[in-house]
């Protein structure tokens, strides 16, 4: 393995984790975009997605269905579960205090995170759960680099989802309403845009993306634990900030960049300093560009 091959292999490794970060980061950044709230419960929503997918997979494999069907069913199950959960969280936890000081919503988010984490632990137990390896394990060696089927699935599905989201936000009426709401909800309400519904839909879509992230996370690592959502949520939040919070392409790029930084840091410096390397890069970037890589909006709304 030449040093160039090694470099590209490490880049590919980082890209895999980065794609999952990006999927979760989208949830943070979309919610921040519309109501300027860091939804700390999002990491747990992601974990609910992973456990929901696991439940569906266990049910379906008991019924001896072929694996592509099981995979689709798991994705659909997780999507519906988390989308619904996101909507419910918005309705019962955040909407009643939307006009309260912003700190109240932040603390509510942290409380929701604890609640979901403990609920998961009570439902599924505190030990690691094995995630069945649905995808037949295949490995290709191309030009000295090796790729697994799982990696391709992660790259492919996150690319499709991100493209879908981009189209949704930029070229549909709903997307236009979301962008308008993020700019000025009061004016939107005056113009007859159902702001509450738009905000709820934003939560639903963000959570559903997190759910797919959870499914991919479970399939890729093969084990899930109720507190995995905490660290993944923190990393994805970091990715969202890196890309410029509130900016959708920023979250995608931030996730990929963070994953690659971690991969290269672990591969070239030292795996024990992996997280330090990623966060030093974040601090350095924010020193020179406080808005993150892509953020367009700096001024805080009154």
């Amino acid at each position: 393995m030449t040093s160039l091959q090694l470099f590209f292999q490490q880049l590919a490794n980082g890209l895999t984790l980065g794609a999952i970060y990006a999927l979760i980061a989208l949830g943070y950044t979309m919610v921040y975009g519309v109501i300027q709230l860091i939804n700390f419960a999002h990491g747990e929503v992601f974990m609910v997605g992973a456990y929901g997918a696991l439940s569906v997979i266990l049910l379906c494999t008991a019924a001896h269905l072929p694996w592509p069907v099981v995979l689709l069913a798991a994705a659909l199950g997780a999507l519906l579960l988390c989308g619904g959960l996101g909507g419910v969280i918005e309705r019962i936890a955040y909407r009643p205090i939307r006009r309260a000081p912003r700190l109240n919503a932040l603390i509510t988010a942290i409380g929701m995170s604890f609640f979901l984490q403990n609920a998961l632990m009570l439902c599924y137990g505190a030990t690691d759960r094995q995630f069945p390896s649905l995808i037949p394990s295949v490995r290709w060696d191309v030009g000295g680099l090796s790729f697994t089927g799982m990696q391709l699935l992660i790259w492919g599905s996150s690319a499709v989802l991100m493209a879908f989201l981009q189209v949704l936000v930029m070229s549909t009426k709903l997307g236009k309403a979301m962008r308008a709401t993020s700019q000025d909800p009061v004016a939107c309400a005056l113009l007859g845009i159902p702001v509450d519904r738009i905000i709820a839909i934003t939560f639903v879509i963000g959570s559903a993306l997190g759910a797919i992230g959870g499914l991919l996370f479970g399939l890729y690592y093969g084990t899930i634990n109720f507190h995995d959502g905490y660290l993944m949520g923190m990393k994805a939040f970091t990715a969202a900030v890196l890309g410029g919070i509130g900016n959708i392409p920023g979250a995608m790029i931030g996730g990929l960049v963070l994953g690659m930084l971690e991969g290269l840091g672990a591969g070239y410096l030292s795996s024990q300093w992996k997280n330090v390397f990623a966060f030093v890069a974040l601090v350095a970037l924010l020193l020179f560009k406080p808005t993150g890589l892509l953020a367009e909006r700096v001024a805080e709304r009154a």
Partner: peptide, 20 residues
């Protein structure tokens, strides 16, 4: 001789390095 962090899940970078 390198360390990894408990509860981390992503070890492909260090394993790729070891492979080389």
């Amino acid at each position: 001789h390198e360390g990894i962090t408990q509860a981390d899940k992503e070890f492909t970078p260090i394993l790729t390095k070891i492979k080389s």
